[in-house]
Design a protein around this nucleic acid. Sequence first.
RNA 1: GGAGGGAUGCCUGAGCGGUUAAAAGGGGCGGACUGUAAAUCCGCUGGCUAUGCCUACGUUGGUUCAAAUCCAACUCCCUCCA
Length: 417
Amino acid sequence: MTNLRSDFMQMFLDRGYFHQCTDIEALDKSLYDGPVTAYIGFDCTARSLHVGSLMQIMILRRLQQAGHKPIVLMGGGTTKVGDPTGRDESRPVITDEIIQDNMDGIKKVFEKFITFGDGPTDAIMVNNDDWLSKLEYIPFLREYGRHFSINRMLTFDSVKLRLEREQSMSFLEFNYMILQAYDFVELRKKYGVTLQIGGSDQWGNIVNGTELGRRTNSFELYGLTTPLLTTASGTKMGKTLSGAVWLNEDMLSPYEYWQFWRNTEDADVGKFLRLFTELPLDEIARLEKLEGAELNEAKKVLANECTALAHSREAAEAAAETARKTFELGELSEDLPTTEIPKAELDEGIPAFALFNRVGLSASSSEARKLIKGGGARLNDEKISDEGLVLTSADVNTSGRIKLSAGKKRHHLILPA
RNA sequence: GGAGGGAUGCCUGAGCGGUUAAAAGGGGCGGACUGUAAAUCCGCUGGCUAUGCCUACGUUGGUUCAAAUCCAACUCCCUCCA
């Protein structure tokens, strides 16, 4: 890699975001010469994005900070078609209303990280449904289809690997590449976009876009990809004890989000600090040098910074304090995730397993029973040994709550109301 | 259009008439050890109004006292041939 001139590219490499680029020198020059408009596409299959998309979100944020213009492309059109990848069961069709709803939820995530508006470096959010669903088949084929070589498409990993594994691929899926390529060209025309960023799995789609732009309009487009992120022990990151690590507060509390980062594996701390926080590199270098239990301090910094970005500095501090009380002092923190239960119901008594299930510490009553049987369930920090135990108002502790724990890390409070 | 192969639990993948809620591995959860880490070891891993009951082996019917296992039709997938 020759010497880079643009701050953005330099940062991109230094922090570990870089995987591949269609033409790094030309892109670097373009970024150095002036503001660049770049986009990243996101599916809208859920009401929130999760940490799996966090790297891309951070990149858009960095892009904006560096004086460029980020565009968030919502895959409203592709979501409407339904992602055919995965199971063969036909999934329920997502209605326009749900897609809109999901987009609204996802926008809330982005508002935490980037600034939207009409200014030159303000971000905008667009929906590919706006142009994709208006396409006319024959004109589209004649104008764009002719530029795609089937021979070539078969060599792209997304297709090749699928065929090698003897998995069927429908014509619909086969077209994804083409639609995404078309998106890029369309965004170039509408908003002057010249750069598409995405995960390494998007490389083929991105390259198709740059080539389609060149062939149809002689556009000079760039593609840039990020590495696939896995934890040091090789598993996909993005799961917490209670499911996906959502970025929206109403889907995952800041405390649980903080916990997710606090539980990072030792070997990942430095990498995550670089990718998901904005701490200076020398500070990160110092933190990741900590050894043994001291590394826990670095994990706390990681958790604090990540939570501050996704939620707020106050939320991060509150989460840190809750964790400190719960794990380090062994005290009861009243800020643990809490569920209110009508007092009358508690007076009558609720089976422990039912309560675990109700507050989300288990996915089913059976699972809760197994938890109790296996000795992993605790009531006010005392192990529950009776599977049929019924909790009542008598179990409320001195702070007026009931503390339930599933394992050592998951805690939940019941507040009589 | 023809010939052959296949569809099993979250995933991979055994089973091929009863002892099968279904081997094994992965993943997940819990326990031990630790540092709220990793690795390792142990247990659990369909659901429920729970010493019982209900759903499950592509779909629908059939044979049988008894089917994931046998038969028929259908659906989808794969491979080869045209």
